[in-house]
Design a protein around this nucleic acid. Structure first.
Lengths: 133, 133
DNA sequence: CGGTATCCCGAGGGATACTG
DNA sequence: CAGTATCCCTCGGGATACCG
C-alpha cells in the first residue's frame, strides 16, 4: 500500500482557494522543508538526540546563527523537542518529536529518488548547458 | 515494499565527503525542488501537457519571469520537455518527461504527509507563538 | 556551551515594458 | 503567445563580536 495521493486532484482543490499560502500544504509546509538547512538537520537527528555543538560539527558549513534559527523553526512546527540540562556550562539537546519521526519515511522516499537519479540529472544538466552554443 | 533508505547511514556517507553540495543529493537536487515554484509546476503538469499561459493561469501569483526560469531549470534537469509548435502566434507546450513522472510518487508521499499533518503543525505554531510572552 | 545582537552582502524574485 | 530585458528591492543567510 502506498501513501500516494492524487496530486492532480489535490492541485485542483488548492486552486479553488487560489493556492493561498496559508491553506495550501505545499506552500505552507514544503517551503519550510525546502530551506537551506532543514532537511539536513532532520536527517542528522534521525540517528538520535544531538547537542547543539554536535549538530554544528556534523554540518560543517552551517553558522550558529542559522543552526539556532532552523532548530527554532523546527521546534515551532513541533518536529523536534528541545531539552535544556542545567549543567554548569549549559547543555541543550535536540531530538525528533513523534511528528518529526513521522516525516523520516516520506523524506527517505524523496531522498532515495534524488540519489537514484542524481547522476541522470547531472548528465541532463551537462547536455543542456552544452547545447547552448 | 518501500523505497525507504537508511537516512542515518546515508548522512554518514555524505559527511565523509564533507556534505559537498555537488555530491550530496540533498543539496544538489532537493535545493532545486525546494525553491518557490518548482513543486507547484510539477504538480500542475501531473495532469498532462500544458501551455505556457495555461500554467500561468493555473498558478495565479507567479510572474512570467519566474515561470520561464523555473520551466527552464526543470527542462535542464530533464524533468520536463518543451515542444514548440510553429503556429502563427507561437505556442509552446510543456510536459513531464519520464524522469519527471518518476518524481510524482515520492512527491505525492511527501505532500500527503504535509496534508495529513498541516493542521497539527499550524496548532503547534500557534502554541509556540503564544508561549512567547 | 549555547546562544544573541549587529552588520552586511548577494541572490531570489516581483513589476513593468518591450519583442519576434 | 511566449517569452526577454531592466530595474529594483526584499530577505535569506554569512561573518563577527558579545553574553549568561
Amino acid at each position: 500500500m502506498t501513501d500516494s495521493i492524487d496530486l492532480s486532484a489535490k492541485f485542483a482543490d488548492w486552486q479553488a482557494v487560489g493556492l493561498d499560502a496559508t491553506q495550501c500544504p505545499i506552500r505552507d509546509v514544503l517551503d519550510q522543508l525546502g530551506d537551506k538547512w532543514t532537511t539536513l538537520i532532520v536527517i542528522a537527528l534521525a540517528a538520535g538526540a544531538r547537542r547543539f555543538s554536535a549538530l554544528n560539527r556534523q554540518i560543517p558549513d552551517i553558522s550558529k546563527r542559522m543552526l539556532t534559527q532552523t532548530l527554532r523553526d523546527l521546534e515551532r512546527d513541533g518536529l523536534i523537542t528541545r531539552h535544556v540540562f542545567p549543567t554548569k556550562p549549559p547543555s541543550v539537546e535536540y531530538q525528533l518529536a513523534p511528528l518529526g519521526r513521522s516525516l523520516l519515511d516520506p523524506l527517505a522516499t524523496l531522498i532515495g529518488w534524488s540519489e537514484r537519479h542524481h547522476a541522470e540529472i547531472k548528465q541532463s544538466r551537462s547536455r543542456f548547458d552544452a547545447s547552448i552554443d
